[in-house]
Design a binder for these strands. Structure first.
Lengths: 197, 197
DNA sequence: CAGTTTCGCTACTCATCAGTTGCGTTACTC
DNA sequence: GAGTAACGCAACTGATGAGTAGCGAAACTG
């Protein structure tokens, strides 16, 4: 867990402006949506946040620390639907992915970070930790589905997880094709066709 | 189609060494397997190829031109199995992908280029052209499978293509997990489970 | 042979950008 | 008020790396 540079413990002095914190995070996400990590410039982040570059370095020791902290904050937003209906849970997951990846800056930023993470261990750790957590949760859903007879007993769970999570990044990062919104419904339907007992 | 810098048309003079051409291509693939595009240095390519940097610039006007030309050459290697058995064709495709992505420098280079292509239109064009060609060919296989009754008539072909091609890049670029070799068999099997009439 | 082009080598130019420094100002605490 | 830390601003350092220039030598053509 990357921390911002902490204030020195002694009290007193002008307090940090929390609006500045928020503005910086937003600016990083916006910049990363537009350019890859390697081309994201600290000057641009500062300017977009309406902040001096020195202010960035008062909070984060380096560019990578800034991005890491921003990502960690961003990646905690995913949630899981609490339902015993496997198809409902999976549809909800894919719908969230469509919302993230198909539209808006954060999804584009995430795909850019994935691209960079390929050879930036610091960022890879953050991204992979988040995706692993998601996989773990999803695996539990599938095992429960097997236990109560919604899914085949010999289901290839690991592969199923890949298929659920792979399509959206693939379209953004590799094929470059747009992500149609109805994919949120088509994906779990197609996968479950082969997964029922 | 990026060309090497052509020799001036007048004949005479020392001919280009074709071994140098090959060494350069190999060196680019090897470098790109180790570092992302943005960190690939022309000096390193030259050194690995056992060639002077000026020699690179005699053939390619810029870094991006060098990488593009190398990729175009590399991406023409994929082939399709000529068989009427859909599962056989799909298994062959996934096997080729495993060979490419799970092992060896070229696959790692490709994933690195995919990462860079995310915001480098010049490279994106090359990669996407190659993947689009592959999709087209695969779509034909699936339609044939529907026509002769191997596959369901209401199969979601587009989604099927995504699922066939997405898993390997996903593992490399996003989840960072290794690509087990038996995925080549598990993937088409799982997909066909839900695709038969 | 003369002419031409490739090639290795060394050294250079030049732009970019992360991170720093110093200073004046502002907003708090005691 | 005095002390302290957050801010903006502007100028700077220092490293990195794409692309270039000039040289001497090697390899071909006529």
């Amino acid at each position: 867990m990357v921390q911002t540079v902490p204030r020195s413990p002694s009290r007193g002095g002008r307090p940090r402006d929390p609006q500045v914190d928020a503005a910086i995070v937003d600016a990083v996400l916006a910049e990363l949506a537009a350019v890859p990590y390697s081309k994201m410039r600290m000057d641009d982040v500062a300017q977009r946040a309406g902040v001096a570059k020195t202010t960035l370095y008062r909070r984060y020791p380096s560019k990578v620390a800034l991005v890491r902290a921003t990502l960690e904050q961003y990646l905690t937003r995913f949630t899981f639907l609490d339902s015993s209906d496997v198809e409902a849970v999976l549809s909800d997951i894919t719908r969230q992915q469509v919302d993230e990846f198909a539209t808006g800056a954060p999804g584009a930023a995430l795909s850019n970070v994935c691209a960079e993470a390929n050879h930036n261990p610091e960022l890879a750790a953050v991204v992979r930790h988040a995706f692993r957590a998601k996989r773990k949760e999803l695996a539990r859903v599938l095992r429960r589905g097997i236990a109560d007879g919604q899914l085949r007993a010999d289901l290839d769970i690991e592969l199923m997880l890949d298929l659920l999570l792979a399509v959206f990044p693939y379209r953004l990062l590799v094929s470059g094709e747009p992500v149609p919104r109805d994919l949120a419904a088509r994906l779990p339907r197609a996968l479950l066709d082969g997964a029922r007992p």
